[in-house]
């Protein structure tokens, strides 16, 4: 698996799109710091960008890579390696090269601005951890969709729909239900609904860490009570890990039975 990972990683970090992605983050990072002159504020703005953009890029790169390397996958499958290694190697190659672009692209501007002297270090760290989690999650989901759909157009559409649902529509439904069922106690409902969407979960985690949950009103207070504790943070991280583990396990399961 490591050998396949190594070469798909080499292939991807040299592709033009990785550079574009990296440059984009570098640019965003420097521009935000230049405009804000404040690390914490820049982190909040970045969060808003990251929780939407990272899933989108992970989804698109994941699905494109899978479809583009189809013939190469066949060549690899004819080698004396386990199927699982071929797919997990490719998946990690995509996810790690994307994560690296994110880490370097945002890390450089912030470090050069004096991140380590400021008190925003932990918030920024959490932002990067979350970004990495989201990359791992959405690349894995994209691989799942690609493995189920032979038809590229269909696979691509489903992937984009999945992103749209989790990034935009889910929140809409969530808010609507809060309004409609406003007369009932919704503490547990809102916490569980947040847990079920990795994008929401990352957003809430960062917001709480930044101590601006007061902006969220009553719900914010509930979240603060729940996520603010060690158990809350631990539980959220566990759920994010599950969001990675389940799709990856499904890649493994599908790879055993698939025909090429």
């Amino acid at each position: 698996m490591l050998k396949i990972l190594k070469y798909s990683f080499f292939d991807l970090v040299r592709s033009r799109w990785s550079y574009v992605y990296l440059l984009f983050y570098l640019l965003i990072g420097y521009v935000l710091l230049f405009l804000n002159h404040d690390l914490s504020k820049a982190v909040i703005t970045l969060m808003n960008i990251i929780v939407i953009l990272v899933p989108l890029i992970g989804t698109i790169f994941g699905i494109m890579y899978y479809y583009n390397s189809r013939e190469f996958t066949e060549l690899l499958l004819a080698q004396p390696v386990k199927r699982m290694s071929v797919f997990l190697g490719q998946y990690l190659g995509v996810a790690l090269s994307l994560s690296l672009s994110l880490l370097i692209g945002l890390g450089l501007p912030f470090i050069s601005y004096g991140l380590f002297q400021s008190d925003a270090v932990w918030e920024f760290g959490l932002l990067l951890v979350n970004g990495t989690f989201l990359t791992l999650i959405f690349t894995a989901l994209a691989f799942n969709i690609a493995m189920i759909n032979e038809n590229r157009i269909k696979g691509f559409s489903y992937a984009i729909l999945m992103w749209l649902f989790l990034a935009v529509i889910y929140d809409g439904i969530f808010l609507m239900s809060l309004v409609v069922f406003g007369e009932y106690p919704l503490d547990n409902f809102s916490i569980i609904a947040t847990m079920l969407n990795p994008i929401d979960l990352s957003r809430i985690l960062i917001l709480l860490k930044l101590d601006i949950s007061a902006l969220l009103g009553y719900t914010g207070a509930i979240f603060q009570k729940f996520f603010g504790t060690h158990t809350g943070v631990l539980l959220s991280m566990t759920i994010l890990t599950l969001w990675v583990a389940l799709p990856v396990y499904n890649i493994y399961r599908k790879s055993l039975k698939k025909d090429f």
Binding site: Y7, S8, F10, L75, A78
Partner: peptide, 25 residues
Amino acid sequence: YLPQIANFPANLTVKEIFSMIKDLR
């Protein structure tokens, strides 16, 4: 095995693809 369609990772060099398959086998 020689597959019907030849399509390799776009950004690897010929040398690297050879060393990759040699690595695997």
